[in-house]
Nucleic acid binder design. Structure first.
Lengths: 156, 156
DNA sequence: CGTGAAATGCGGAGTTA
DNA sequence: TAACTCCGCATTTCACG
C-alpha cells in the first residue's frame, strides 16, 4: 500500500495524540470526516499501527525513580533468552525492554518507588534469574518520545 | 487525588489501548458510561496521563533497523545538554531518547532504513555535534512496552 | 448525507461520615 | 448536612456505511 501526505499526516497526528477523534483528524487534514474515516480505517486494516499506548504520569503514581538497567546473560541462547523475556513479563515495574545485539543483551526501562524498591528489584527480583551475568543501572533524568521520522521512502 | 480500583483499571486499559472509547471502558469496568466518562475526565484533568501515543509499524514504513545508541558527551554541563537535546529534536529517526546519570549521558532509540542510513546518521548527523565524546550502537532485536506496574501505593 | 450510536452534562438517588 | 459516587435521561455530536 502506497501512502500519500494525508496518510502520513494521520500517522503523525496519532503518534502525538492517539485519542484524537476522526472529526478532529479531519479538521487537521482539511478533508471531509468521511474521507478521513476511510483513510484511518485503511491504515488500521493495513496494520500501520502497532499499538496505541497511554503513557502515565509515573511520578504522580508514586514511581519517583526511573532507571535504565543493562543486563548481560551468561548464555545468550534462544532458550535462556525466551525464559528471561518470560520472566520480564512477571516482574512489576518494567516499563519497556529492549533485546539487543552486542555486549549488553537486555536494556530495561524500569520505574520504582524509591531507592529501596530499586535495590530490592535488582537484588531480589532480577538477580533471581539464574543466567544473569551482570547488571548495571543508570538513573533516568529525563526521557521522551520523539516520533521524528522521515517518510520519504513510503510516499508515492 | 486518591485512586480506587476502577481508576486503576481505566489507567491500565488505556495503557494497552489508548483508543478505547468511553463506552468500551464502561463495559469493561461494568459501570454506566456517564460514570466512566466522569472518572476519565477527572483522571485526565488531574494529569494522570502524560501522553497518548500511537506506535507505528516501523518495518512497514521502511525502517528496517532499530538501534540503541549510547552517547557520551565531552562535557556533561547544562548548556551542552540543552543544546544536545535541542539537536535531537531536529534529527530524523529518533524514536525516543533517555538522558542518563553515569558513564553514558544519552541513550537514543533510533529507527533507520538500512545500514547506510545508520552510518550516515552516526557519522554525519550525530557526530556533527561538537561535544560528542563517544558513540556506540547496538542493534535492537526486539523491544516491547510492558506497563506492568503495581499501584499499591496510590490505592486507598 | 442519513442513521444509529456515542459523548457529554445534569439532576437526583443512595451512601457514608 | 455535606461530600461522595453512581445512574438514567436528554441533548448534542460523531462514527460509519
Amino acid at each position: 500500500m502506497r501512502l500519500d501526505q494525508k496518510d502520513i499526516q494521520i500517522l503523525k497526528l496519532l503518534q502525538n495524540n492517539a485519542r484524537l477523534s476522526n472529526k478532529e483528524l479531519a479538521v487537521e487534514l482539511d478533508i471531509a470526516p468521511s474521507t478521513c474515516h476511510e483513510r484511518l480505517k485503511k491504515l488500521t486494516k493495513s496494520n500501520f499501527f502497532k499499538a496505541f499506548n497511554a503513557s502515565l504520569n509515573l511520578e504522580k503514581l508514586g514511581f519517583n525513580i526511573e532507571v535504565l538497567i543493562r543486563v548481560r546473560l551468561k548464555k545468550h541462547e534462544r532458550e535462556v533468552v525466551n525464559s528471561f523475556i518470560q520472566k520480564l513479563h512477571t516482574l512489576k515495574g518494567i516499563v519497556r525492554f529492549y533485546h539487543l545485539a552486542g555486549e549488553t543483551n537486555f536494556m530495561l526501562h524500569v520505574a520504582v518507588e524509591n531507592p529501596n524498591t530499586l535495590r530490592s528489584f535488582i537484588l531480589d527480583e532480577l538477580s533471581d534469574f539464574k543466567y544473569i551475568d551482570n547488571i548495571e543501572s543508570s538513573i533516568i533524568y529525563h526521557n521522551k518520545c520523539l516520533h521524528n521520522l522521515s517518510y520519504t521512502n513510503v510516499i508515492e
